Simulated scan of single mutants.
Amino acid sequence: MSDSKYTRETVLQVHPWVPGKLLSITTTRSPEFEFTAGQFARLGLPAAGLPDEPPTIWRAYSMVTPPSQREFLEFYSIVVPEGEFSPRLAALRPGDSLYVDKTAFGFLTLDRFIPGGATSGGGTPTHGDLWLLATGTGLSAYLSLLQEPSTWAAFDQIIVVHGVRSVQELAYRERLQQWSRDGLPEAAGLPRRARLTYLPIPTRESFQDMPAARLTHLIEDGRLEQLAGRKLDADVSKIMLCGNPDMLTEARQLLKTRGFAVGRRGNPGNLALENYW
């Protein structure tokens, strides 16, 4: 095993969702890299103009692929035109190198929550609901979680809410729509599995029957619960928030009034969050 803190991986594929703005990149995966669904990696590149030098520029990206996918890693990125890293990431082509820190990080993992929910009216224990609320590329971590059969076995209902500006930014939409119809194929043999509700919400365009509104407004006025057909109940629901910092701050305050709180050491909560553009 190498003593280096990172591995040099090879780009396998670059898929543009919105040219010049949104892309997914697939690389090889070192057997030394281990992670939990929902975590992120630090990706590295050498300084511009020094392709053969060690990486010095690092950025965090959640894995789209699940831990069980041993052959490759997939990441989802927005391109910041004036950025030091993402335009160069978008310019990579198959065969190019990308560095991956061997240590995974992040708190959007299911072990942040106490398993299960309350009991139903008849006294039957429920598994509760998992709400996955994201803006933009914050969707990444949820895609990894949703490809793990254990996620589907842990809840009665999973609600994925993806807030973007325009319809074309609804990356991975077809995959999520398929899971909402058919479930995860790998979970078919489970004794029980959750049902998935997918709510794609562009804020600047009308799309299907979805309101063109920010996620925080939909939480505040109750429309998010109406769309999902489920209540945001602190005794039953577990919520993950991933997106831009302003959304997280506002949503956390709104949910706090509903009884949702981030867990502390030795005291798991019912809310987990991470800043992610």
Rank of each mutant, 00 (worst) to 15 (best):
261 A>C: 08
40 F>W: 14
27 T>C: 05
202 P>A: 13
209 D>V: 06
226 Q>N: 08
14 V>A: 07
222 G>E: 01
245 P>L: 10
60 A>I: 10
264 R>P: 08
197 T>Q: 15
69 Q>I: 06
183 G>K: 01
61 Y>H: 12
245 P>K: 06
277 W>Q: 12
238 K>Q: 14
259 G>K: 00
24 S>G: 13
134 A>C: 15
30 S>M: 01
167 V>Y: 04
16 P>G: 14
90 A>H: 14
45 L>F: 11
247 M>D: 03
62 S>I: 02
145 L>F: 09
161 V>P: 03
230 R>C: 12
65 T>G: 06
77 S>G: 12
253 Q>C: 01
168 Q>V: 14
257 T>H: 00
151 T>S: 15
164 V>W: 07
194 A>R: 08
250 E>M: 02
131 W>A: 02
84 E>G: 03
212 A>P: 04
206 S>L: 11
53 E>H: 14
64 V>Y: 02
31 P>H: 09
241 L>I: 02
189 G>Y: 03
34 E>L: 13
260 F>C: 01
260 F>K: 01
232 L>P: 00
212 A>R: 13
45 L>I: 12
200 P>S: 08
49 G>S: 11
124 T>W: 13
150 S>L: 11
252 R>V: 00
217 H>L: 10
258 R>C: 00
91 A>Y: 05
10 T>N: 04
226 Q>L: 14
164 V>D: 12
277 W>R: 13
240 M>L: 14
115 P>H: 06
62 S>E: 02
54 P>K: 11
99 Y>A: 03
128 G>P: 10
56 T>I: 12
5 K>D: 09
254 L>C: 00
241 L>S: 03
224 L>R: 03
273 L>D: 06
257 T>A: 00
19 P>M: 12
243 G>F: 05
242 C>W: 01
49 G>A: 13
3 D>V: 08
72 F>P: 01
48 A>R: 13
229 G>K: 04
54 P>H: 07
260 F>Y: 07
65 T>K: 05
197 T>Y: 07
149 P>D: 02
91 A>N: 07
175 R>D: 11
131 W>N: 02
274 E>Q: 14
180 S>A: 15
218 L>Q: 09
2 S>W: 06
27 T>R: 02
154 A>M: 03
121 G>S: 07
125 P>M: 09
103 T>Q: 15
219 I>Q: 00
170 L>D: 02
156 D>Y: 11
76 Y>P: 10
228 A>V: 10
179 W>D: 00
207 F>W: 15
167 V>N: 05
22 L>C: 14
83 G>N: 04
83 G>D: 10
248 L>C: 01
236 V>C: 06
79 V>K: 11
164 V>P: 10
154 A>I: 07
169 E>Q: 11
155 F>C: 03
59 R>G: 05
98 L>V: 12
45 L>C: 07
48 A>C: 05
132 L>I: 07
101 D>H: 14
217 H>A: 13
230 R>V: 07
8 R>E: 14
168 Q>L: 07
255 L>Q: 00
37 A>K: 05
226 Q>C: 09
199 L>M: 08
190 L>E: 11
118 A>H: 12
271 L>N: 02
43 L>M: 04
157 Q>N: 15
193 R>I: 04
1 M>Q: 12
235 D>M: 06
3 D>R: 09
128 G>Q: 11
86 S>C: 11
45 L>A: 10
221 D>F: 01
256 K>L: 00
161 V>R: 02
